[in-house]
Design a protein around this nucleic acid. Sequence first.
DNA 1: TAGTGGTCTAGACCACTCG
DNA 2: GAGTGGTCTAGACCACTAG
Lengths: 248, 248
Amino acid sequence: MPAEEPAPTQSRYRWLADELRRTIELGAIVDNDALPSERDLAEQYEVSRDTVRKAVRYLEERGVLYSDHGRGTFVAPALVRNMSRFLDSFSHDTSARGGVAGQKILLVEPAAASLAMAGLLGVQPGRALIRIKRIRSIDAHPVGLHDAYVVARPELHIDRAALERTGSLYKLLREGFGVLPAEAVENLSAAAADAEDAKLLQVPSGSPLLVCERVTLSERREPIEYCQMKYLPSYRYSTRLSRHGFES
Amino acid sequence: MPAEEPAPTQSRYRWLADELRRTIELGAIVDNDALPSERDLAEQYEVSRDTVRKAVRYLEERGVLYSDHGRGTFVAPALVRNMSRFLDSFSHDTSARGGVAGQKILLVEPAAASLAMAGLLGVQPGRALIRIKRIRSIDAHPVGLHDAYVVARPELHIDRAALERTGSLYKLLREGFGVLPAEAVENLSAAAADAEDAKLLQVPSGSPLLVCERVTLSERREPIEYCQMKYLPSYRYSTRLSRHGFES
DNA sequence: TAGTGGTCTAGACCACTCG
DNA sequence: GAGTGGTCTAGACCACTAG
């Protein structure tokens, strides 16, 4: 029996997924325990089996559940649960970890796309960009440098004041201009801090840094920005991988 | 009209997905072009619309397609296409990039789980493990160190000879013992090479390294191994992020 | 053999986008 | 308003797992 009816704005499977997640977080079903069968859940929550399957799949994608053909559907161990690693801004990601995100804006200026950057972003070389360079901090401690190149658009008016106000470039793009990041490609490696990095992050030159390059695309897969991020060793980047088939 | 019937062993939606991917790779539909509507595809390929939707979703998960409510289904730009980033072994990943994976086995020996490792793996402290330390190389150039701790099982007989023969720990676990990695959690950061790292990788002590820690789980979410990987700056770790909802 | 998840179908209606 | 993807249903059968 449904504990509560789904809000009219929400789909039934999302509502069911939330119900199931709540049940799990309450500790009613523990790690690696089986859920009731899909047919039972369908009856209990008064939805079709297909709707149950959608809810289960939704939670599988988020690492909350996993299903085994012929055996059942189970609660994923806490280690992987909620390791969603979807698209996220530094600010949002940091507060999700219980920290306070900060920034010191070093630079907001027009720039032109270099050959390399144009290729990555899929725009013409020389295309107008807006460069934004910032020191990012968590709980007032500097942890990294962000060097972003946003593809300029006529309606886009990014200035230091607006950025300072919102504290998050993504939030500014979304709320100010309706630009919504939908997908991103990232490339991680290690590098030594150069003289400038060292000075800004207050570490010796040559110190190890985690370098993350990112290209962000809009819902229509138009390029939004290229960003190079350099982090101190204390910064940790977490992710979850699934098999999802037999690609081996 | 279907070009060819699906093999009896394969599901129809996987077959359709392969057909669509082939069509795209042939260049018949270019980046950001729209596919025929789901209803049209269902008619063309003589399947139900639901089967079309499953095929499309399958390719969306792999970064090949994306759909927009009310607009259509489109081919993802080449930048994100085929950036699947599912669970993969070093060997497989390397050959997918066109390189030849190599290894030099430094150590295969029994070990006991430390407190920290026991917590990560979800086993008792002191639990029997098998430690495997290797230098990994691409095209005969050393690129990283792998230090793996495999959870020992009675049926599991890992020795240097077997590992040398297969060249891949995952392949050995899969083909030798039917242990299939299903999910993994990774944690990346930067670190300086210590004296031992430096010697093994032939770089100065203090050089920047990309450190990747990974816990791998089986299909039943039993712990398989903990592995710490350290890579030179030339090694690149690529990933793709999606929004998948409104978690911002 | 009974029970589970996986696939497939046909049809209905809703929500969104765009000319 | 016409066309698109998104949700939901009810029922059938297959493939796998376990006692």
